[in-house]
Design a protein around this nucleic acid. Structure first.
Lengths: 222, 222
DNA sequence: CTCAAAATAAGAGATATCTCCTATTATTTC
DNA sequence: GAAATAATAGGAGATATCTCTTATTTTGAG
């Protein structure tokens, strides 16, 4: 992890101003952090000292279960908060947050800002919306995972993450995210290829029958 | 559904005052609603006109999937909000909310109060906490459902809901909640009886080996 | 550039969970 | 209080998903 200082810091603060998120100034103690791919922004079970706001990059929220299984709870993208649970709650089991690309965050020291933040309607309004979306998304994922087999959920995931008709997520990540074994993921991907929905090209998969995947994915959504 | 008026309404408003949740008065347009067991407080996909705050009773949040499966997303208890998603978002797929016991709610007409509510730090702070807990709970349930078989999740549920050592939830409800088939739930309950963890008494189950269930449940939690 | 670690690939067999079916017993409703 | 509806009970067979294993390929650190 690197902390930006001086000129570089100023440039970031100006070009990605977050002043509109608060009704008071957070400039005094704000830091700008840069994390490399695979760096841990927050380690599991270690309470962070900052409320982070992601400016660039992408990160993953992980939890490790007692049976050794690891779940990728969700992805975090630019313009999202990290550490807001700890800001709000004194008692909270902190999840691990790992950068999956180079990630730049603003970091507000909780120690200095907590009190003010919790009294700021502007900040709270946006955080409320952010959390309500999270809660809704998690509820949707939860019920979908119980109501539909991998076939449907994977089709949805492929369509969501494919870039110009090519799906290229890493299997290990996808297993943790969709909560299935590596072996089973392979099995269903193979089926998609056999049925002609996808075409395997090395590590990537070219989408061949968009409509078939769409059909499988559609039943997840209301 | 009944609306309380006059004296009865006044008594409720006084005995269960929610003035501390807001920094302005919501008395002018507030209503007091009573729902019977099995009444729908909100119908799925029908946007409600009120933000509800539950005073007494218990309700269930349902969603119906396109394949006909029904998921019981969560329970709602006293001192929780209903309809907060619709307050926050103009576009939202409304879930069904059904009273599972006689339920009394305060109902704030969104039309009148929305603007003020979204500017009230006191209200927003508590709502933020409420939603953060929801999001965390849903994330936990989601990852647990993927990482552990029914055996563990059911043990946890039994311990959470048993009353004086007796488990007496309806199977149909539990299936929807834990996202498994009726048949499978029966199967695992039977196993618990065969192993001596539970003893079936008519429709109820007496807990016989608390520690065995505890052991199964414990692995879910960090 | 090299070696260790991680990711991919796939077979084989186990098991968790589902679907479909048929009875029996409670609960509601008119 | 009888008839309709919902809940419970369980058999039988299917399938979605997991675990374990072994081999090959790719990636990352020094």
């Amino acid at each position: 992890m690197k902390k930006y200082k001086g000129k570089k810091k100023q440039v970031y603060l100006e070009e990605h101003s977050i002043a509109h998120l608060f009704s008071f100034s957070v400039e005094d103690f704000i830091e700008v952090h840069e994390y490399q791919r695979n760096d841990w922004i927050i380690q599991e079970s270690m309470r962070p000292d900052f409320l982070f706001y992601v400016i660039e990059g992408k990160a993953k929220i992980y939890i490790t279960h007692q049976n050794g299984k690891v779940s990728l709870i969700n992805f975090i993208n630019a313009n999202e908060y990290i550490g807001e649970m700890e800001l709000l709650h004194d008692v909270y089991y902190t999840k691990g947050i790992q950068a999956s690309t180079k990630t730049i965050c603003f970091a507000l020291p909780i120690y200095y800002y907590r009190k003010q933040l919790l009294e700021d309607a502007k900040f709270l309004r946006e955080l409320t919306k952010f959390l309500s979306v999270k809660a809704t998304e998690m509820a949707a994922k939860y019920t979908q995972s119980l109501a539909f087999p991998l076939e449907n959920r994977l089709a949805d995931f492929i369509l969501q993450t494919a870039d110009q008709g090519v799906y290229k997520e890493r299997h290990v990540t996808v297993c943790d995210y969709l909560g299935v074994s590596y072996r089973h993921l392979q099995h269903v991907l193979r089926q998609f290829c056999d049925k002609g929905y996808l075409n395997k090209e090395g590590r990537n998969y070219q989408i061949r029958q968009y409509h078939s995947l769409k059909e499988l994915a559609q039943v997840l959504h209301n």
